[in-house]
Design a protein around this nucleic acid. Structure first.
Length: 741
DNA sequence: GAGCACTGC
């Protein structure tokens, strides 16, 4: 949700009053009324009827003297760009597209990279649909923020308008649109959030879902939502654009919608396989690169590895090579390869080492050779132990094709697959499983409920998730109090869905007001959101003995006390950008709390450490994370509650004593099971805060269960439960316990 | 004492 709801409301009001034809601002007021255009035959759009235009009409308007949307003369730059646009492959299909969209509510469009679909199709729709006549807009969604921004910028130039005026973009933290905006690029997550408050998406007359082949969680939900909305809005047009050949699936899903195919502008790529399987793909990749460099013509190399660790291995430098991980050197990959080392010698060669991000989202010119070891790191979800983890897995045939295609963007290329042809044919799956089949669905289910989808079992997913995964999500939301026992959304659940956070974090934030520490929990939640960059940085001087969550709070306080100084961050080994970003998230969440009347409170600070300050915070943390708890056994191992997984504290943890019960933020599955970002809690809090989850009848046998049983017995017999378990005894030799591990 | 594909609200 972006900056101000008030701003949005005003904008909506302005748009809801389409009395005047905004294209005719140069005319006297009476002629500006809708329908009045016909009375001025000189206007470029005078003869246009929404939903019944031709490519010829539109091109004539584009070729004219005056920009029909601004009434200003077209610039020279505009005309130059227009020439290029007319040469794009998609341009030849303009009339075909119009015919399809006139006769169908949904159109599927397959266009490979370089076809021009992302920039042109929305403009074709603008000229045909004339959204501003209706006081509506056209939305084009992108999975990534950067894409939404840069495409909007490009299209604003193509249409010769100022970005944020007729063409704009809307992403988290940045709404670059105005009351004049008729074409809006946005992230799919942003449109989804809008749908939660406007279930029919009534502000839009057409919605284009781009990069649908990505099958992100948001795209999948939006597609399901579109199917619902078109039943209720026959005035809404939907275009689903994808880069893969798997268009049949999209067609079938959208009730046999018609398909338009736009070829890309690509060159042939020769594919080479290894005769035998490779045992060490990293070594094989480096060897292949060396061989290409020795024997092949000039041209850059793109190498797909699975992660940063791999990429360090690829950092060889020899004979004018440069090698850079994409994340580390986003600028350098666009530079030219180095010149020959000796005059007249062999040309230099650039090697781009990348994760699968270069598969679709990144275009690098000059790549002629692709090295594809056939693996990528993928998210997987195990509903049995409720853990999401990253796993190096074989890629799909579709991914392999995408990868090889990267070699043919500028001229004919070669792709070296480091696996056998037989493996490609027989072992690789056709397409990568969509994210929705590989994720914890807590957030998805909460969003769907908020969107008003009551019957989740029969919701028309393009790929329905496993019932067990669905059950896990419902169970989580029920324990958190977001759904009642009938699966109906509670007021708390509705409020939780308004926060752009995991359900546990949302619950924790909302509940923190009851514990009088919402200011502090707000900070912790914001820092956790940025944990990958910020959490590990909590160095010794900021660490808190009771846990990592509290250390994050210390880091943020110190950062603010140092006036958010960049040098201070550097001196203290903290990531400045991550902290700024956490601060940005914090402001957004704070605004949401203010809007929804969640009190912003703090407990008395000076009474630390004995007073309630930290206890209150830890209780609030427990209110969100009571399902992610581990108990330390006598063997010193930790066992996760209910699932009984053996885990160890992640070495980055600053917990400095044996803590019998801890909540954890993250379960990291590697060679060992680790829990990361942990804070000590008390058994009595668990029973008190989440009695439904800590119903011991639902527990498998374990030490933790017996400890809780004893505690309950003691409580029943009227004694104080304060000295439960063995924690007080162990605290005395806490340092030793730590060392023993 | 280990390691983190990518994205998004």
């Amino acid at each position: 949700m972006s900056d101000s709801r008030e701003k949005k409301r005003q904008k909506q009001e302005a748009e809801a009053a389409p009395k005047e034809n905004p294209y005719l601002a140069h005319l006297p007021a009476e002629e500006r009324l809708v329908g009045g255009a016909a009375s001025n035959e000189s206007h470029p759009l005078a003869s246009f009827v929404s939903g019944a235009t031709t490519a010829e009409q539109a091109e004539k308007a584009e070729d004219g003297i005056v920009n029909p949307f601004t009434n200003k003369p077209f610039s020279d730059r505009y005309r130059k760009i227009l020439q290029g646009r007319r040469k794009l492959p998609v341009n030849r299909h303009r009339q075909e597209f119009l015919d399809l969209i006139h006769n169908n509510q949904v159109v599927i469009l397959v266009g490979e990279t370089g076809s021009g679909k992302t920039t042109q199709i929305p403009q074709y729709l603008v000229f045909d649909d004339l959204p501003a006549f209706k006081g509506r807009k056209i939305a084009c969604t992108q999975p990534r923020r950067l894409a939404a921004m840069s495409v909007a910028q490009r299209v604003a130039e193509e249409m010769d308008v100022v970005l944020s005026q007729e063409v704009g973009y809307n992403i988290r933290f940045e709404d670059c649109t105005s009351a004049n905006t008729m074409l809006q690029y946005m992230t799919d997550g942003m449109l989804l959030r809008e749908a939660m408050n406007d279930p029919l998406l009534s502000r839009y007359s057409a919605i284009i879902l781009d990069e649908a082949h990505d099958r992100t969680l948001s795209t999948d939900i939006l597609m399901g939502l579109m199917k619902e909305i078109i039943k209720k809005r026959d005035d809404l047009k939907v275009v689903v654009m994808s880069a893969t050949l798997d268009a049949g699936k999209f067609q079938k899903y959208f009730n046999d919608a018609p398909l338009m195919n736009v070829p890309g502008r690509t060159f042939p790529v020769e594919i080479y396989y290894t005769p035998e399987p490779e045992s060490d793909y990293l070594e094989a990749a480096i060897f292949t690169a060396a061989q290409i460099h020795r024997t092949e013509d000039a041209g850059d190399i793109l190498m797909f590895l699975t992660g940063e660790e791999d990429q360090d291995g690829g950092g060889t430098d020899a004979g004018g090579w440069t090698s850079q991980g994409v994340a580390l050197a986003q600028k350098r990959i666009y530079e030219d390869a180095p010149p020959p080392k000796t005059p007249g010698g062999r040309p230099g060669r650039k090697i781009v080492v990348s994760t699968n991000i270069a598969e679709t989202s990144l275009t690098i010119d000059g790549i002629v050779y692709v090295i594809d070891p056939g693996f990528s790191k993928q998210k997987v979800y195990n509903p049995r132990i409720r853990v999401e983890s990253l796993l190096v897995s074989p890629i799909s045939k579709a991914s392999a094709q995408q990868r090889s295609g990267r070699a043919g963007r500028t001229r004919p290329g070669k792709c070296f697959r480091l696996y056998t042809e037989n493996a490609f044919m027989k072992e690789l799956i056709e397409t990568t499983y969509p994210e929705i089949l590989r994720s914890n669905l807590g957030t998805v289910v909460l969003q769907l409920k908020k969107l008003g989808i009551d019957d989740l079992v029969h919701f028309d997913f393009m790929d329905p998730p496993a019932p067990e995964t669905m059950m896990r999500a419902l169970e989580l939301l029920n324990y958190l109090g977001a759904l009642d026992d009938d699966g109906e959304m509670t007021p708390l659940g509705r409020l939780m869905a308004d926060f752009p956070l995991d359900p546990q974090l949302a619950k924790m934030l909302i509940e923190s007001a009851r514990y009088g520490c919402s200011n502090e929990v707000l900070t912790i939640v914001s820092m956790l959101n940025e944990h990958r960059k910020a959490a590990d940085e909590a160095k010794a001087q900021f660490s808190h003995p009771d846990g990592d969550h509290l250390s994050l709070l210390n880091v943020y306080h110190a950062f603010k006390s140092a006036n958010e100084d960049q040098k201070w961050c550097f001196d203290n080994f903290l990531n400045f950008r991550a902290l700024k970003s956490a601060d940005n998230v914090r402001s957004q969440l704070k605004r949401l709390m203010e809007r929804w009347d969640v009190d912003l409170l703090s407990l008395p600070f000076d009474e630390r450490p004995k007073g309630p300050y930290y206890t209150g915070i830890r209780k609030a943390l427990t209110a969100g994370y009571f399902m992610q708890v581990a108990h330390q056994e006598r063997s010193n191992n930790y066992l996760t509650v209910k699932d009984n997984q053996v885990v160890r504290l992640h070495p980055s943890s600053c917990l400095d004593h044996a803590a019998e019960w801890v909540i954890y933020n993250e379960f990291v599955l590697t060679n060992q099971n680790y829990i990361r970002t942990v804070t000590e809690v008390k058994a009595e809090w668990l029973l008190e805060i989440a009695p439904a989850f800590y119903d011991l009848d639902t527990f498998p046998n374990c030490e933790g269960k017996r400890v809780l049983e004893k505690l309950i017995m003691r409580k029943k017999s009227g004694r104080s439960g304060r000295d439960e378990g063995r924690s007080d005894r162990d605290r005395k030799d806490g340092k030793d316990s730590k060392r023993r591990r």
